[in-house]
Amino acid sequence: MADNKPRVKVPKKAAKGEVIAIKTLISHPMESGQRKDKAGNLVPRQIINKFTCEFNGQVVFTCDMDPAVSANPYLEFNVRVDEPGTFKFTWVDDDGSIYEAVNSIAVE
């Protein structure tokens, strides 16, 4: 699905050792597998089941998601930044698709 657009908010720069807040949102229906269509058939589950945030190749935060996470899953979390570098965000869909976003941060 090409419409799963990730949106990420990361500060452009931070002081060394500062704890920054990161906000992420991705467009996704998060079909729970509980819902029925008009004909009364269960709509099969299809959700994003895992989110990972890496900083310079090191995993700093991950989240396992179940169908109770709302559509267009939103996540806000913190990371301590000790050096400049690149954040890589990965979302894994039930169907195996992977959605990615990359953001860099400067340290002054």
């Binding site: 920054i20 700093v60 939103y74 806000e76 979390f77 913190n78």
Partner: peptide, 8 residues
């Protein structure tokens, strides 16, 4: 993580 906080 710096601080253990998350929102969804």
């Amino acid at each position: 993580s710096g601080v253990a906080e998350a929102k969804t």
